[in-house]
Amino acid sequence: MLAPAEGGLLDLLESSQRPCVLLKVPRKHGKLTLLCDAKTDGSFLVHHFLSFYLKANCKVCFVALIQSFSHYNIVGQKLGVSLTTARERGQLVFLEGLKSSVDVFFRSQEEPHPLQFLREANTGNLQPLFEFVREALKPGDNAEAAWRCPVLLVDDLSVLLSLGVGAVAVLDFIHYCRATVCCELKGNIVTLVHDSGDAEDEENDVLLNGLSHQSHLILRAEGLATGFCRDVHGQLRILWRRPSQLTAQRDRSLTYQYKIQDKSVSFFAKGMSPAVL
């Protein structure tokens, strides 16, 4: 199960002193992982989790709102997975937001679309999207039983706010998804939310705080406070919200710095960049 995703977060396990931190992410089921980026682009985390779960033979439903399929596909190929094959095999269900938005907006409505709310005037209703996710991850007949735990991946939830959906509606959506994917199907959810930082985006803050409160693991990518650097692209804070029995290690936060390379991401302890040493 733990085929280490090349160059992904699991590299961190090799280099770090405490290998137990992240191993439990994929092994445990029913977890909500929140990816968050502030003043930098955290999409490398999404790519990591996408390729990781595909390699681990999980059934993945990917709601991609911000980029096109071929972008994810090409990056996926660099990380060693082919999204096209995964989609053909039925392992991956891909919802391409950009493309569907055009369909929803310009074609006359026949059947309800997951992104139906784009056409509607009042605040968005995410029920069709939830139905889509549930349908996609529903355990099918025996042929499909080969896939491991189902995973819902969303890139990214902040886009929904821009499209006119309220923060509370998005939180409700995630809550429904948790009930279905995490509890019923024993799967995992991974979502990305931007941290608007000093932009004072109230809706986004409500969403981010609400999700932080619910999630089991928070991976927070931050740009360096000192600005752009060629050799260190940012730092990753890992906040593992442990279950209460491990009180000693509860809410332990770890910080690593990272550098994104062509096909991988290298992590190192703060100030220990190879370029500095």
Partner: peptide, 17 residues
């Protein structure tokens, strides 16, 4: 306030295809 962002989203969808 979502008018502009919605417009950009659909426009981007058009451009990408």
């Amino acid at each position: 306030s979502q008018s502009l962002t919605k417009f950009l989203y659909v426009l981007r969808g058009l451009l990408r295809t």
